[in-house]
Amino acid sequence: MSTTATAVGVSPKRGIWGGGNEPLKASYGKLMMWFFLLSDIFTFAAFLISYAAIRVSYPGYAGPAESFVGSNEYWPVPELVFDAMPFLHGYHIPLAFVGLMTFILIMSSVTMVLAVEAGHRNDKKDVVKWLLWTLLGGITFLSCQAWEWSHFIHGTDGGSVLTYVNRLGQVVTETVYGANLLVNEYGPAAFAQLFFFITGFHGFHVTIGVFLLFLAFYQAAVGVYEGRGHYEMVEKIGLYWHFVDLVWVFVFTFFYLI
């Protein structure tokens, strides 16, 4: 969406890659956003593939779902771990809360693409409206994740009886509630470690996304982009926001479904 004419006539001698024009037909900022996202895909892929590698190195829980107890001997079944809902303490409602979080993030991605579309039309009113909805979706998602983490850390009423090596290097057998980086009531220590790292790294991305969205919302509302003559910034932040949604789609599958 460059406003200045940059294309110099392509001479047959130099060809399209010989310089003097834009062979990729995208602005510098958009290209750099794409290549940043490519590097970020590798980072997240490394996290998720490590999860898979560590997971297959443990036996899975094979017993009936009703008699499931957390143990550091086998990998837990996600739907038996993530079964809590806010305000409904003690009920077994598997995966409903993460399902809701997924819905919120996908919807905020939809409102983002509507904001980008409005930007193409220079429609300030629509851009501001859809960015505000996206911002709301992002903040709601982060709040849900904060609750999810808090519940994961504090654990269930019953806890699990585990034998493990504590901070002082002693082997102890005791009831463990919740999760930390050393031990957790759901499964092997690596289960909680990976949960904190992967969803935490994703949540960190969402947090940055919320800041960027606020910036775009503010600048669009006060007319910065209108003065600039184009809404390319909305498009670039949109790419980032869709990427955050894309990563969540994978986190949802690998962490909560498989």
């Binding site: 990729l24 037909k25 995208a26 789609v249």
Partner: peptide, 20 residues
């Protein structure tokens, strides 16, 4: 399949130049 939809429809990767 979902990733394909997000990248092609939401991020408009399909509409970019082929080398990109």
């Amino acid at each position: 399949w979902k990733a394909k939809y997000i990248m092609m429809e939401f991020m408009h990767l399909g509409e970019e130049a082929k080398p990109l």
